[in-house]
Write a protein that binds this DNA or RNA. Structure first.
Length: 182
DNA sequence: AGAGCGATGGCCT
DNA sequence: GGCCATCGCTCTA
C-alpha cells in the first residue's frame, strides 16, 4: 500500500490505526484525515530536491517524517512512494480509540473532539516530536496498522498552503466528527 | 552570516 | 473570523 503515489496512499490510509506504545499504556487513533505531498508539488518540502530536513521523504516508504513548524508545532507524515521519490502523507486528524485520558492531559482539554483534530494537535496528544523523525513505523514505539473503511471519501484543497493550492489533495472520511475542518 | 517565511493552533471578539 | 506567538530551514550575498 505504502509504495503507492502520495495521492493514492493518502486515500488508502484513511481508516488505518496509529499506535503508540508507552511505558505502561498504549495510545490508538484511527486516521480520518490526510493530505498528499509529492516532489512534483510546489507545496511539498521535497519539491526542491533532497535537503537535510526532507531527506526522509526520499527514503523507503513506511517511515515517519516529523518536522517542526511555526516555531511551536510538530507535524507527522508517513513517507510513501518508491525509494528515491520524495513523497509523503501528512496525517491531519485522528479519531481517538484508546488512551484518551493521557491525550486529554497532554492537550489540556476534556473535549474528545479536540484531542487529535489537527496535525499539531495529534502530535501533542501522542507525544510525537523530532526524535521520531526517520522512525520505522513497522516497529515500536510508533506503529501503523492497515484497515479499511466503509465511508465515502471527500477530496478538497489542502489547508494552510499557498503554492499549488488548487490540487484536491486533502482527503477525509465523509461525516466523521473528528476531522479538523469540514 | 543573516533575513524572511511557513503543510498552525489558541485565544480573543 | 482575525490576529499573534515563535524558531528551524532555506535561500541569498
Amino acid at each position: 500500500m505504502l509504495q503507492l503515489s502520495a495521492v493514492e496512499a493518502a486515500k488508502a490510509m484513511l481508516g488505518w490505526h496509529l499506535i503508540k506504545y508507552e511505558d505502561s499504556q498504549k495510545l490508538v487513533g484511527r486516521i480520518v484525515e490526510t493530505e498528499a505531498y509529492d516532489q512534483t508539488d510546489q507545496a511539498s518540502h521535497s519539491f526542491k530536491g533532497i535537503s537535510p530536513r526532507a531527506a526522509v521523504m526520499f527514503g523507503p516508504p513506511g517511515f515517519a517524517y516529523v518536522y517542526f513548524t511555526y516555531g511551536m508545532h510538530y507535524c507527522f507524515n508517513v513517507v510513501v512512494g518508491e525509494s528515491g521519490h520524495g513523497s509523503a502523507v501528512l496525517i491531519r486528524a485522528l479519531e481517538p480509540l484508546e488512551g484518551q485520558s493521557t491525550m486529554k492531559k497532554r492537550r489540556g482539554t476534556n473535549n474528545e473532539l479536540m484531542l487529535c483534530n489537527g496535525p499539531a494537535k495529534l502530535c501533542q496528544a501522542f507525544d510525537i516530536s523530532r526524535d521520531l523523525n526517520g522512525h520505522d513505523l513497522h516497529k515500536q514505539p510508533l506503529m501503523l496498522m492497515s484497515s479499511s473503511i466503509d465511508g465515502e471519501i471527500v477530496a478538497t484543497t489542502r489547508i494552510g498552503i499557498t503554492k499549488d493550492s488548487h490540487r484536491l489533495w486533502r482527503f477525509y472520511i465523509k461525516g466523521n466528527k473528528y476531522i479538523s475542518k469540514a
